[in-house]
Amino acid sequence: MSKDNNKVKFSRFNDFLRKFRKQKSAIFALVILLILVLIAIFCYQIAPYGINEYDYSSVLQGPSAAHWFGTDEFGRDLFSRILCGTRISLTVGLCAVTVGAISGTVLGLIAGYYGGIAESLIMRMCDVLFAFPGIILAIAIIAILGSGMTNVVIAVAVFSMPTFCRLVRSSVLATKESVYVQAERSLGATDSRILFKHILPAAFPNIIVQYTMSIGNSIMTASSLSFLGMGAQAPTPEWGLILSTGRTYMVNAVHMMLFPGLAIFITVLCFNLLGDGLRDALDPKLSD
């Protein structure tokens, strides 16, 4: 299809930018995400109250001017806690998916490029991992490793890994036999040159789309785990954990569930919108 030279690459990138600019909702999502990143960095500076500042005389108060999102079961300010929770959720999502994407990509490259026993082994392992629905796999891993955010990252990474692995492998299989790779090989190019100069760049658009989408998914899974009591340790202001505590007060303090839920929703939504936009801009099939 395309030749490997800088000019083509550059025009491909320009083409992508042109298309991406048309994705209004994706750009909107990107802006929100940037704001969220800023919140995550400066949360402790902008939060009006300390996250562990309790006040037994005003517990479970609804939203007010003093407490925008109301207070929790110890009279702590929910708005401050949710602000600071941004850092946790974003970190968990990014770390887990990055680990999953890198390991999945490496395994996918090996499986697709070298084939043979390595491929059988890796793909069988993916099959086994795929045989468990995501949340169940995560529950199993957490059960063995114990709860806590580090283990949540590992669990989420493990279950996002096989998707990347399969994705990269099929992309490798498609590119490996292409004319220009064959040509390079006949000219005596090394494996690593072929892998990193040709095959990986070809798989890259798919990886980036999957990466963006997976972050949203991971944030959701991580908070589900906290909800099931297998994630963050109290009093960490993790959104899923706040929500899980809130269910006890559902009858008389709905705000305890409403706001952390909204926070998760908005964050995941933005990652998904961004992923959609990237895919539409990168996928030639969907262009007009």
């Binding site: 909702s25 949203g216 959701m220 908070s223 589900s224 909800f227 899923g240 929500l243 269910r247 559902m250 009858v251 709905v254 569930m257 409403l258 839920g261 998760i264 929703f265 995941v268 939504l269 998904n272 919108l273 959609d276």
Partner: peptide, 28 residues
């Protein structure tokens, strides 16, 4: 746009949250 907004919202909503919101509205 409307259809896809609904759809992308649908995949971004945590299951347990929808559940509780439905309970607090329709049951409680």
């Amino acid at each position: 746009y409307l259809g896809m907004t609904i759809a992308v919202s649908g995949i971004s909503l945590p299951n347990f949250w929808i559940g509780f919101m439905l309970i607090s509205l329709f049951s409680v």
